[in-house]
């Protein structure tokens, strides 16, 4: 769930935002439907927005009985401390870690690897090269996806959340080739993000992409894929899921 000023929104190719409800209510509904984990991303830039988001994290922690992670606007250790104290189980760092990779070491040495998800937004160019982007996919860097993911693991990251900017919002499936390369070369769990459009895409990312988990937003927010139906389907396809 992308959260702006206390409301859930979801971008299509990181640009157009549409409202999709109260994040706490939505989170509760998803946990009751059988979601295994929730991700809340603060896309508000302002200081007031940050306060609103922290209050929301407190309300989520009081309401939801499954693990959840929070990200967005985490620049230093005290942001992590604030969000974990509000009741989040994990934090995800993205741009701040690319700018200051030592932040990953700091977080994991203070709170353990299990709380630190390194989120990576990357784009594949016509030559097939994957490049990491900053600020929600707005600013390119000179870091390659695979090199950065490897460094993040070495620095203690507990999980990698990889969003393919080419696939996000397109609903034509996850970036399974890149996911498979990440999953096969790293020893930490890889969460696939960006591209879910139908149930088969989830199956494919587990089987072809070797993903450890799959994340989606709009197909759930707009009721296109009911979670219980998706999990039944995955089980029938021989994938180990919690029902």
């Amino acid at each position: 769930m992308d959260v702006k000023d206390g409301q859930t929104v979801k971008g299509t190719n990181f640009v157009n935002l549409r409202h999709a409800g109260d994040p706490v209510e939505l989170g509760k509904a998803y946990s009751e439907q059988g979601a295994d984990e929730l991700v809340f991303l603060d896309i508000t830039a302002s200081h007031e927005g940050r306060k609103t988001f922290t209050d929301m994290v407190t309300r989520v922690a009081a309401t939801v009985n499954i693990p959840f992670s929070v990200g967005g606007g985490i620049g230093e250790l005290k942001d992590v401390d604030r969000l974990l104290n509000a009741g989040a189980d994990k934090v995800s760092v993205n741009s701040a870690a690319l700018r200051n990779p030592g932040l990953i070491d700091e977080i994991t040495s203070h709170f353990g690897s299990q709380v630190c998800i390194v989120a990576i937004d990357a784009h594949q160019d016509e030559q097939g090269q994957w490049t990491c982007y900053l600020n929600g996919g707005r600013i390119p860097t000179d870091r390659s996806l695979f090199e950065w993911a490897h460094e993040a693991q070495e620095r203690g990251a507990g999980e990698i959340l990889f969003t393919s900017m080419n696939h996000d919002g397109v609903k034509a499936g996850f970036a399974n080739e890149a996911l498979r390369r990440l999953s096969d070369s790293l020893s930490i769990p890889i969460i696939a993000s960006g591209g879910a459009g139908c149930k088969e895409h989830f199956r494919d990312t587990f089987i072809e992409g070797h993903s450890d988990a799959a994340l989606a937003a709009s197909v759930f927010h707009f009721g296109e894929i009911p979670i219980p139906e998706l999990k039944q389907y995955l089980k029938s396809e021989g994938i180990n899921v919690r029902l």
């Binding site: 295994d36 690897s113 299990q114 507990g158 999980e159 096969d184 020893s187 930490i188 769990p189 450890d212 988990a213 919690r242």
Partner: peptide, 10 residues
């Protein structure tokens, strides 16, 4: 390779 530590998840 599949044995990831920490054991994290359901």
């Amino acid at each position: 390779h599949e044995d990831k530590v920490p054991h994290m998840g359901w």
